[in-house]
């Protein structure tokens, strides 16, 4: 227990043992930076109650720019509920959500999407009857400007905008690796391609933060590795932060700069992968208090 304490409070970074993300320096409280404006996404003391139940209890959460953060926890931890509050699907009972320095708590999901928060879904929710290209173009809605009249009369401006949108869509499809599938109906794509399409679609929103809900579910190890590389590329090339909900520990440990752990609505741990790996509370939360024999398995 004391080791992880030392790790967590160490100023100056902890070299990660794997060839993973660059080291992360937590800034101790009392520093000059305002968490609201220096983070892409900042959730401040979020509590979510349904009737008398507290699903999420006073959780604060920060995602800096160009970072990869994971949110993990056993089943029933409140991860999805919390995710839904971040994206605006649920209203928090208490607390505030800041996106790019602005308070988005009262703002509806579609506006948050337009402001730069994009997500994928745990059970893929593509528009099956539209082509891959069209799926991506739907997400460009906030960034396109043509109105009803210019659409009816196919003004040069509208036509140009459509052309550019199609080009951007194709480029995004190439970027995620399914460039050849642009004319294919989304429901006819393979599972892996559908996952990629969902990400391409989310990226069409030009987000500052990409929220991925169990993106590697159903992937084999090779695909998971491809996914890891992809996440780094996205973070570095596209200036985005990525927030993942995941259960696959190998992906989490390799890819995350920081990990937040929830259990039954409470934030029980927060730190680098090494911190979490050794954290007794986390291990117990996942496995119950039935001894640490299984705990050793948790180290990826």
């Amino acid at each position: 227990m004391s080791e992880s304490l030392a790790d967590a409070t160490q100023i100056g970074g902890t070299p990660n043992s794997s060839d993973g993300p660059p080291p992360v320096t937590p800034v101790a409280p009392g520093g000059n930076a305002d968490p609201v404006t220096s983070n892409v996404l900042y959730a401040d003391h979020i509590t979510i109650r349904f009737g008398g139940l507290v699903a999420v209890n006073d959780v604060s959460f920060a995602i800096p720019p160009k970072s990869v953060i994971s949110l993990i926890g056993p089943n029933g931890a409140g991860k999805t509920t919390f995710f839904n509050v971040l994206t605006g699907l649920y209203e928090a009972s208490e607390g505030t959500v800041y996106l790019n320095g602005k308070d988005v708590t009262p703002i509806k999901p579609h506006k948050r999407a337009a402001m730069g928060m994009a997500r994928t879904f745990q059970n893929i929710r593509l528009f099956g009857l539209m082509t891959a290209e069209e799926n991506v173009m739907v997400a460009m809605h906030p960034h396109l400007k043509s109105g009803v009249l210019s659409t009816i009369f196919r003004t040069p401006g509208q036509r140009r905008e459509e052309r550019e949108a199609r080009d951007t869509a194709r480029e995004l499809l190439e970027y995620v690796g399914i460039g050849k599938a642009e004319g294919e109906l989304a429901r006819n794509l393979s599972y892996g391609d559908q996952r990629r399409l969902e990400i391409a679609r989310a990226m069409a929103l030009r987000p500052k933060i990409l929220l991925l809900d169990e993106p590697t579910a159903g992937m084999n190890p090779q695909e998971s590795q491809q996914f890891n590389d992809f996440v780094y590329r996205v973070r570095d090339e596209r200036d985005m932060s990525v927030l993942l909900i995941e259960h696959d520990m190998s992906v989490i440990m390799k890819i995350s700069e920081r990990i937040t752990v929830l259990d039954r609505g409470n934030l029980i741990a927060e730190g680098t992968p090494d911190d979490i790996r050794n954290n007794q509370t986390v291990i117990e939360a996942y496995l119950g208090k039935t001894g640490t024999r299984e705990g050793k398995r948790n180290k990826s």
């Binding site: 994206t87 699907l89 509806k108 999901p109 579609h110 999407a113 337009a114 994009a118 997500r119 879904f121 929710r125 593509l126 528009f127 099956g128 009857l129 539209m130 069209e134 173009m137 739907v138 997400a139 460009m140 809605h141 906030p142 396109l144 043509s146 009803v148 659409t151 009816i152 009369f153 196919r154 509208q158 459509e162 949108a165 679609r201 989310a202 069409a204 929103l205």
Partner: peptide, 25 residues
């Protein structure tokens, strides 16, 4: 004509999956 362009796509997206459409802006 009105069905082309982003409005038509938006309508179709809403018909298929309103929630996902809303999350996509």
């Amino acid at each position: 004509r009105i069905r082309e362009g982003r409005l038509g796509r938006a309508w179709l997206a809403i018909r298929e999956d309103e929630l996902a459409a809303s999350m996509m802006g």
